[in-house]
């Protein structure tokens, strides 16, 4: 067996289908909140919360990683991936206690997204304030 290359075409197709699918479901949830009376500009928030909830449950049930093996970036890039990284750490390290395990390690994987998001926003904000 030579060092096998990833099946690129298959991965791209699944990433497109799963990513598009998840965002379409998200769009349906967003439209649902709008019809429930949430102003359109703010409907993104409960939508994101709902999607995070679903991804967290899937992680807890142990099915998220099975889907992610196929979906790849299609499920990792949307906020489902963020929810999974937090939930999987929280669940895994419960064994080391709620405080020192779950509490301390929850953001081990997702932390850099928050850190670099904040750092970027800081400089963007500074630049926008100064120009």
């Amino acid at each position: 067996m030579k060092q096998p290359k990833p099946p690129l075409l298959k991965n791209i197709i699944y990433a497109f289908l799963f990513g598009g699918g998840i965002c379409t479901i998200g769009q349906a949830i967003l439209n649902l909140f709008v019809t429930l009376g949430v102003p359109e500009k703010q409907a993104g928030n409960p939508t994101v919360a709902t999607v995070i909830f679903i991804a967290a449950v899937m992680t807890g049930l142990g099915v998220f990683d099975d889907i992610a093996r196929v979906a790849g970036a299609g499920i990792a890039v949307p906020v489902t991936g963020f929810a999974n990284s937090v939930t999987s750490m929280a669940v895994e390290f419960r064994r080391e206690g709620l405080v020192l395990g779950t509490g301390s390690k929850m953001f081990a994987l997702a932390g850099s997204v928050i850190v670099f998001g904040v750092v970027t926003a800081f400089f963007i904000g500074l630049i926008s304030a100064l120009i």
Binding site: G19, G20, I22, C23, T24, I25, G26, Q27, I29, L30, G44, T47, V48, V51, V77, P78, V79, T80, G81, F82, V113
Partner: peptide, 8 residues
């Protein structure tokens, strides 16, 4: 819409 809101 959600196609831009859901990605990280």
């Amino acid at each position: 819409g959600a196609g831009a809101l859901l990605p990280i």
